[in-house]
Design a protein around this nucleic acid. Structure first.
Lengths: 130, 130
DNA sequence: ATAGGTGCAAAGTCTTTGCGCTTAA
DNA sequence: TTAAGCGCAAAGACTTTGCACCTAT
């Protein structure tokens, strides 16, 4: 992976913006200061960075993929009200792969969990307004 | 929800084909005997049936949604070799929502788990051919 | 020199939607 | 008769790709 200015910028943007941005969000953040930048470049680099383990790709069914600079294993929740993506510490979830593999005869290589709900802010404002 | 011949056919197809078909798969199964059928109708009805709890919609990141006529709560595995979708009994997985909600302050409404790996067939043929 | 990157625009995949016609209740 | 459904074709959202040019090594 030879150096490229664009890739550096894209990685930096994800690392500095802890909001788990989508490709489009990264693009929008960078575009003003880098008018020549292409959305295709953002997609290519985010995917490449994820493949190389420098970022985590978080697929969201029915929506755009998000990218996360936090590499420690953890899960995510999508806020159904504001769309925010919230980190969920990993330790509350056991290692399913082995368990499920033993019981079903399948060879499990991994699994993805995505929680749905309301983030702290939206949950408290919903309570307040009732 | 007023009756429609198409909806009946679509539901019947999912119930009889325990392969967790996609909208397109349902369409392909029905098209030969029902040349007038439209893919849009299949999508509309599958979604409506899922909303009404007669089917389960299984979103697959980066791929087409699958639909499942088995209503008892359970999870799924996508075979990375043949693409088959395999049922995973539910009891091996605890109720996360409450746990995670308590720890994070978020109001969790649900979660989705999707396993990745090799189904029994593909796992054994991989072993055999080595 | 050359493999890898980039920008642009086109294409691809999956899904939804607008519209005029049809049908169940 | 009228709200719900249908078929068709168009559009939408997200992502990838082909190509000609550029750049790090």
């Amino acid at each position: 992976m030879i150096y490229s200015k664009q890739r550096e910028l894209i990685l930096k943007t994800v690392l500095e913006n802890r909001v788990h941005p989508t490709a489009d969000a990264v693009f929008s953040l960078l575009k003003p200061d880098h008018p020549g930048l292409s959305l295709a470049t953002v997609y290519r680099n985010l995917n490449q960075l994820a493949e190389n383990g420098l970022l985590m790709k978080i697929p969201v069914p029915g929506g755009a993929d998000h990218f996360d600079g936090t590499l420690e294993p953890h899960y995510h929740m999508v806020c159904e009200k504001c769309g925010a993506m919230v980190d969920i510490p990993r330790e509350y979830v056991p290692a399913f792969d082995r368990e499920v593999g033993e019981k079903t005869g399948c060879q499990i290589s991994g699994y993805a969990i995505l929680f749905y709900g309301l983030c702290k802010n939206c949950a408290s404002s919903a309570t307040a307004s009732s």
